[in-house]
Write a protein that binds this DNA or RNA. Structure first.
Lengths: 202, 202
DNA sequence: GTCTATACCGTGATAGAC
DNA sequence: GTCTATCACGGTATAGAC
């Protein structure tokens, strides 16, 4: 168990206990949703992990959907990587994503884990880094098909998140962040500046 | 319903009927696993879709796991894209993947859909296009980090499969296959030939 | 021999009693 | 704030109908 509320001191005021319980449940939920995805994670298991009765979980969050929503609230905004020299845009975006993910944020990984099999997670993923991320990037690109190219950049980022943090491919997991940036940056660059793509040189 | 066995003619020989039923179940299973993933798809729903009693589903395949395994047998081998001029390797790999996927093969999409939340699907994905695919590609690459670079190529392919065929991002879905090849080929090329990557030119 | 009806047992979500 | 009861559902086994 990662957190239990049994450690609440008897003298703790009720409202404090309530907050601790709330946090413990959220924490347990995030952890389990992250590892197993939405469907395989049960309220009972969340209660167990949090050291709390399953019924209490419902009391705090209403139902499983609402709990998932609360547990998968994401702190990830590609817009933060956009300002700066245009020439280093692809490196900035890539680095932002990799460093955010290297913190292994439970909420974000929970969303990613479930995005293929759960509507709400799919929607959250779009908002966080697919549709919305692409729109943001698209704003600083020019040339033909800026929308499509931005979507492709996001596609590559998602691919990397999936293989590195969910499927955990050996090579990708073990590679140092800097090496990944080195290798992937040219990929993104070719989408940022399609007019300068390699085939024009070779 | 996509297929029912009620259309079996009464005069059909038993063994034929059995085959038809078998195929109908497999077909229904593939279709449902593809759309909903492993956990959300129930034996009962598969039976309904196939116009067959749920118990019969078990009789034919033993259990849900075995049915999934049978339904998600994949016909996809990157090795087919490897032979040929080295200069066009990235284009061949990309085109192979895109054309295979554009046929929307149920079994492959079922595997992809479940790979983040189901062990067996994850394993199948590794065998089909991640670990094994990377190993195969790695064989024809040279230079530093051939293994990592092959894995990254597969990563990009997976990203594309996911956004185009599962999450169905508008831009990516609507883009013609040829345009996708045009835009993504330079990405892969930069991984095939890292020594010639764009940053060396700019 | 092929399929159907039904039942069993576990589990999960949730509501209501304590 | 905790425990227990309920109710639906899912996977699977079995008995018998065709």
């Amino acid at each position: 168990m990662r957190v239990t509320v049994t450690s609440n001191t008897p003298t703790a005021r009720r409202s404090e206990r309530r907050l601790v319980t709330h946090a413990a449940i959220l924490d347990a939920a995030r952890s389990l949703f992250r590892e197993g995805g939405y469907q395989r994670t049960t309220i009972r298991a969340i209660g167990r992990e949090a050291g709390v009765d399953p019924a209490l979980v419902i009391q705090h969050f209403g139902n499983k959907e609402a709990l998932f929503e609360a547990a998968s609230e994401i702190d990830f905004d590609l817009a933060e990587a956009l300002p700066g020299p245009r020439d280093e845009l692809s490196a900035r975006v890539l680095e932002y994503m990799l460093t955010q993910l290297d913190k292994e944020p439970d909420a974000l990984l929970a969303t990613l884990r479930s995005m293929l099999t759960h509507q709400q997670a799919a929607h959250a993923a779009r908002c966080a880094f697919l549709d919305d991320g692409a729109t943001k990037i698209s704003g600083v690109l020019d040339g033909e098909d800026a929308g499509l190219r931005s979507s492709l950049i996001c596609t590559m980022l998602v691919g990397l998140m999936v293989t590195r943090h969910l499927l955990k491919l050996d090579d990708i997991v073990q590679a140092p962040t800097e090496r990944l940036i080195e290798l992937v940056e040219p990929c993104l660059r070719s989408l940022v500046e399609p007019e300068r793509r390699l085939s024009d040189h070779g």
